[in-house]
């Protein structure tokens, strides 16, 4: 098997050139799915007989929560690839993934809190999932803060990649322990168990939104990565030519 594609993938230049062809497709598909999903979820999915219309928040809350967690793994895995194979591109992807993941975690927390008000009567509950999300948010902020703290870019890359990896080992432990902690302290008045069955008429828009969020994530991650490549490789010849510098003339 040829590993050429793998090494090519490590080159920021190759990625920048290839990804410009993907961008419109990714962005278009994401926008299409997201707008269809939002209209479907807001207007056409039937009302929940128990929660009323507030349940419509599920169509953004669940996809955001999915991607908040998946985004952390994407960040940590690309950081690990960078540490192991010393690939420039994967560090860039890791750094680009951090603020996006933090933003999605914020969405999940915000929509969860707003959803909680009509459902449980309070904005914030120390529910196991909400608490884990909050800790995930802190993990993201830690990676972002550490990557920005170093004056030398490579050190920031490696240090935050290592921190992301340590976080990955910890996430399952944190989730399990928070879960255990919550069952210990669960107030009897709050029944937070959700219906395990969901009607297809409510489920299809949810699937649409999840797919839309994944595509959106891929699109935005590519955009951020491309921008960071331009920023980092600003001194190389190919970026200079791309940005409109004349080709070097032999003097």
């Amino acid at each position: 098997m040829s590993w050429q594609w793998f090494h090519r993938l490590g080159s920021p230049r190759w990625f920048y050139q290839k990804s410009s062809a993907w961008l419109p497709w990714l962005g278009g598909a994401a926008l299409l799915l997201l707008s269809v999903g939002i209209v479907w979820g807001l207007g056409f999915a039937p009302e929940d007989f128990k929660q009323g219309n507030s349940y419509r928040i599920i169509y953004i809350h669940v996809p955001a929560a999915f991607l908040a967690l998946a985004g952390y793994y994407i960040m940590a895995i690309s950081g690990a690839i960078g540490l192991i194979w010393k690939m420039k591109l994967s560090f860039v992807v890791m750094r680009a993934a951090a603020p996006i993941g933090a933003a999605l975690t914020f969405i999940a927390l915000f929509t969860g809190a707003v959803w909680g008000k009509p459902t449980w009567g309070t904005y914030w509950v120390w529910d196991a999932r909400i608490t884990s999300m909050l800790i995930l948010f802190f993990l993201y902020l830690g990676v972002m803060a550490l990557s920005g703290a170093f004056s030398r870019e490579q050190s920031g890359d490696k240090a935050s990649a290592l921190l992301a990896l340590v976080g990955t080992v910890n996430i399952p432990i944190i989730y399990k322990s928070v879960d255990w902690w919550f069952t210990l302290h669960q107030p009897a008045t709050l029944k937070l168990t959700e219906a395990s069955t969901i009607d297809p008429s409510m489920f299809y828009p949810l699937i649409t939104m999840i797919a839309g969020f994944y595509l959106f994530y891929a699109w935005v991650l590519t955009l951020h990565t491309r921008t960071m490549i331009l920023q980092r490789e600003g001194r190389t010849q190919w970026v200079r030519e791309l940005l409109g510098a004349p080709a070097p003339t032999k003097a």
């Binding site: 009323g52 933003a103 999605l104």
Partner: peptide, 27 residues
């Protein structure tokens, strides 16, 4: 939204805002 309007629209508004910010900042 049967009285749940503020919650639903606040959530969707915030999501749209965050997604737009995510897409616009790199540009």
């Amino acid at each position: 939204m049967n009285g749940h309007g503020p919650y639903v629209w606040a959530s969707y508004g915030m999501v749209v805002l965050v997604l737009v910010v995510l897409a616009v900042t790199p540009v």
